[in-house]
Amino acid sequence: MGSEKLKEIVSKVLPEVDVVIGYRQGFDQLHAIPHFITTPEHIDQLIWNPLCVHNLATYLPSLNKKAAVVVKGCDSKAIVQYMQEELINRENVVIIGIPCTGVIDVNKVLHAINYRPVKEVTFENGSILIRTSEGQKKLLLSDLYPDKCKTCQYPTPLVYDHLVGEPVKTDKPPESVDEEVREFEKKSIAERLAYWEKEFDRCIRCYACRNACPMCICRDKCIVESRDPHLMSQKLTPGEKLMFHMIHSLHLTGRCIECGECDRACPMGIPVSKLKKMINLGMKNRYGYIPGINPEDKSPLLVFSLKGENTEEQKP
């Protein structure tokens, strides 16, 4: 699956950088993990397959090193957004783009195999075969896509220095992107509140969603832990949990690139990205702006304008 071509490119790039961030196999064949390559001996372990789910661009802003990074289409939007917000120095980043046809929601696989330890994983024309103590299970990749892949508009990275393979075009209609949110918005306010109360009740405030988010760049200085000023309680009440997620979402207004890392990282299965998608739809409707598409853009909320001419209503 392009692993050989990828290794070739990484071999070429490695001498120019301090580290190349790609993927390798983790503790079992079902789990890929971020792989920090600093010597040629590490290259052999590189992999590329639909289990390479993480958005590796997330490591860039705090790295302080010259780095090459392997990105999928969705991940590349984080880099575009970093460029808009000047969070990385583009000259210090080598982007190795991979045209992607969709990744796997590992939780769906675990569910299908009843969480049994995985002995072996193989891929075969649009399917994944998983062997456990219960025997072999064949699952269609198309049944295992996370939500983001079902409506993906940019399977080929938007920015890259090297591309592994040929660009691929999306076959998903653009309006599919907002379908989930539009459907959800049909619910009454009371229903939506009840929905979020139930979902966030599970939240354990582990901040995996925040720390996995490529655009949550405050991280270690997040105000939810700040005691000075003391803006939020450490309590576990539904109100406090909702407050954290609202702060998280609002800080991502016009910035969330919808890579779905927050959903993937949540150990309690909370659909945290939905709030952000709702805000993104608002940004799109009002300002005609979609984050992470064009490095030259500026998010409307990061640009001050007295007249407000960047709103949809004010545009000529």
């Binding site: 993990i33 971020p34 920090f36 997330t58 490591y59 354990i204 405030r205 582990c206 901040y207 995996a208 925040r210 720390n211 996995a212 991280r219 270690d220 990282a265 150990p267």
Partner: peptide
Amino acid sequence: EQEGNRCISCGACTYL
């Protein structure tokens, strides 16, 4: 250092 590189410093491991 090698192992800690990819940790994202969240609290999932400790809270679970």
